[in-house]
């Protein structure tokens, strides 16, 4: 392996590992395998390093981001952390609008790389952070607003790198499963896989909307990421399933039996993979694990009573 000139060259090309042994053998055909793509191996610790780099480089290329210009972004954690690492290396000041109810590690990591955190109400979830950031972008036209929910460089990073890596390393793939947030991962990887291996099924996993939807005054306050509409996501996906916090935490714990220390959303994705595995006779399910477990240690997800942790997770953003 050659020595990298910068940490940024270490983004992507994440490893894949067979995690079938974490499944309940009685419930799954012996001809089914589950393979995880470990995005926590990126230098900033999550899949979001990919889109953070892609959005910054694309803004540099088209002139919307100039040397020393301030960057603004709404993020519940990982995108902000990826941007913070890259902005530090490249010398851009960074402001992240983040809901108050994320794990303390997420907030601390932003400070590690010198980003400024602007809190939005936790009860409004990611929607609240998006709303606040959009207002701030209008008030400060001199800041570069990358806006991951609508930035084509987000799905493009997955269409040009994550997707090809998966097919290169696991050409036998039949199903791809990942979490649904900005929808960039599923839209980009899904588009690439369906173009190059049309039979592949794309499954989206999402957390329960929970209390954050209570802030909406009417249905039109709802929010569908523009990326999802641009990529005709409704047609691209084959299944969309909610996984609750208890299942997510249980599967996060189960993954340690095969040595995998992953974040809570990876537990949710693994729960979805187990559900998918139980419905097919044979196939290879690729599950994208967005990050590692490090940022969630303070939640007690592995060590405390499952009822207590589940209750705590209900008022927290862990996706």
């Amino acid at each position: 392996m050659p020595v990298a000139k910068s940490v940024l060259e270490l983004i992507g090309n994440t490893p894949m590992v067979d995690v079938t042994a974490a499944l309940d053998p009685g419930k799954v055909s012996p001809k089914v395998r589950v393979v995880a793509k470990l995005e926590g191996q990126n230098p900033g610790g999550s899949v979001k390093d990919r889109i953070a780099l892609s959005m910054i480089e694309s803004a540099e290329a088209d002139g919307t981001l100039k040397p020393g210009q301030t960057i603004l972004e709404p993020s519940s954690g990982n995108t902000g952390i990826g941007l913070a690492m890259i902005a530090r290396v490249k010398g851009y000041p960074l402001k992240i609008v983040m809901p108050s109810n994320v794990s303390s590690e997420r907030r601390q990591l932003l400070s590690v790389w010198g980003a400024e955190v602007i809190e939005s109400p936790g009860s409004e979830g990611s929607n609240g952070a998006v709303k606040r950031a959009r207002e701030m972008a209008k008030e400060h036209p001199g800041w570069a607003f990358l806006y991951q929910y609508a930035n084509p460089a987000n799905p493009k990073a997955h269409e040009t790198a994550t997707g090809p890596e998966i097919l290169r390393d696991c050409p036998e793939i039949t199903h791809f499963i990942a979490g649904l947030g900005t929808t960039g991962t599923l839209m980009g990887v899904g588009t690439y896989l369906k173009q190059h291996k049309p039979g592949v099924k794309i499954w989206a996993i999402e957390p329960p909307a929970g209390e954050m939807v209570d802030g909406l005054r009417n249905l039109d306050d709802g929010y569908i990421p523009p990326i999802f509409l641009d990529y005709e996501g409704a047609e691209l996906l084959d299944r969309r399933t909610v996984v609750g916090p208890r299942d997510s935490i249980e599967w996060t714990r189960r993954l340690t039996s095969v040595g995998i220390f992953a974040g809570i959303s990876s537990g949710a994705v693994m729960a979805g993979a187990a559900k998918c595995a139980a419905t097919i006779e044979e196939g290879v399910i690729v599950a994208l694990f967005a990050d590692g477990g490090w940022k969630y240690l303070s939640t007690g997800a592995w060590t405390e009573d499952i009822d207590v942790v589940t209750e705590r997770a209900k008022s927290m953003i862990y996706f």
């Binding site: 979830g125 947030g181 909406l216």
Partner: peptide, 11 residues
């Protein structure tokens, strides 16, 4: 049956 408004997930 659960009816929910569309909202953005984490990111």
């Amino acid at each position: 049956i659960s009816i929910l408004p569309a909202v953005a997930g984490g990111a």
